[in-house]
Design a protein around this nucleic acid. Structure first.
Lengths: 244, 244
DNA sequence: CGGCATTTTGAAAGCTGTCAAACCCTGTGG
DNA sequence: CCACAGGGTTTGACAGCTTTCAAAATGCCG
């Protein structure tokens, strides 16, 4: 029941690894469709690039929400903790995804890098000032928030009503689609997160996740050349198993 | 496993019960803090009041998302279905809550009245046109979406990691807080939704919800003078049981 | 090679689900 | 007024999926 996996990695010293904005490859953002070139041009002056090592914390639940981020490279895990250490991973972020889209005064979740990661950081106050002269931008943010909401509702369906097999199948199908959309390799698909991360995302235990991987492999839907790499042998069967 | 509770109620004929905007008590909105008086004044011309009987559908998952709503009176259930009939209720809306805040082309969920309900309806296209002359408004919507996201993440934690007792305790504590915030009676608290609705919201079955109500009653945390009315006997103990 | 973390597998327990029946309340009709 | 029907809720007994506890297997890295 108690799943005490408190991450003891030190918080990322925000100033320590900040680079001047010129270092940020803004084209990364454009490629991922999050922002348009003209929007990037306007945002470039207020953006700072951050590089994180695996297990570095971008921010903690409860921190003052002074910054917004855009993931540039790598992968980020977003999670919440209960007082007794139980953890729920609410999302994984990949290049092009926004982070910190919470317009409250504090972050309501923790964000941690799970691989070497590069992020663009925007100071919220500056962004909001800039947004006043970019009438479309606020609508874009609203669209993004709206998409996140739809995703969150799908996840509630997964957590509330799907079986372990359906959850893992849904997860793999979702990761594959997102990799395709980013134009990244999607058939031998890399899983940057651990079994524990997947378990906490799917509302299961590590053991059940592992057993369910084995189950999907024995069904011939996938292959696991390595623990963190998935080959899709019968993608359609896997999609059916996801019970979308 | 299959929980076929398909609602066969006919869709609400949108034109049928629409009333002129003058009939909408816009003060209701202000009271609930969703909108400010000056904002209401601007919105009044494009808003139409809708009245729904219990079980009426406001819109279905997949419908063109042409309207936004603000719940005025009553209670609305928002849900999604899997192909085999399993249902996940993603939220309950009460007076002051916004509905349809999805800026996609179609609704990603179904909204149904669970009591006699009154809603203010805004045509999205008109609202967006109006928003261009209301710079603050878009930010307000973004804040609302952001709050919904935070709520959705709490719900993921509930569905993924909490026990049945913790789920029901969390649910009752949340309903009580929201009733207080609206200034409605919150101690003998009315539950407008059925056990089935609660089950589908909490990712449980009707039987488990019922058993857990009995459990909380036997623990002395609550009383159930009627099935749909809760008296809070030990609110602090209930909050502890919610494992926030 | 050895140490350590992660993943996989096994066995058993437990919480919640399933199936079934009783109970309760309300509305209808004799 | 009472009998009856019907829907929702509660309770019981049992099954099953997932968890828990434990140990083996695998992979990584010094």
């Amino acid at each position: 029941m108690a799943q005490q996996r408190i991450d003891t990695s030190a918080r990322l010293p925000a100033a320590g690894r900040a680079l001047p904005c010129a270092a940020c490859d803004v084209r990364e953002l454009a490629v991922c469709g999050a922002l348009r070139p003209e929007e990037l041009h306007r945002l470039a002056p207020i953006l700072v690039t951050i590089r994180c090592e695996p297990k570095a914390t971008v921010f903690y639940e409860g921190d003052a929400a002074d910054y917004l981020f855009n993931v540039n490279k790598g992968a980020v895990r977003v999670s919440k903790l209960l007082a007794d250490g139980r953890r729920q991973v609410t999302g994984f972020l990949f290049p092009g995804d926004f982070l910190g889209l919470a317009f409250n005064d504090t972050y309501s979740y923790t964000a941690e890098a799970i691989t070497k990661t590069q992020l663009c950081r925007f100071k919220r106050a500056e962004l909001e000032r800039l947004l006043q002269s970019m009438p479309h931008m606020e609508k874009r943010l609203l669209e993004m928030a709206s998409n996140e909401l739809a995703t969150a509702q799908d996840q509630m369906m997964l957590l509330g009503r799907k079986t372990a097999r359906e959850r893992l199948a849904s997860f793999l199908v979702m990761l594959r689609r997102r990799a395709e959309r980013r134009g990244q390799a999607s058939d031998p698909l890399d899983l940057p997160m651990s079994r524990g991360d997947i378990a906490d995302y799917l509302g299961l235990t590590i053991e059940t996740v592992s057993r369910t991987f084995t189950e999907l492999r024995k069904l011939g839907y996938i292959d696991l050349p390595e623990a963190n790499r998935v080959k899709f042998l019968r993608p359609t069967a896997l999609e059916d198993a996801a019970a979308q």
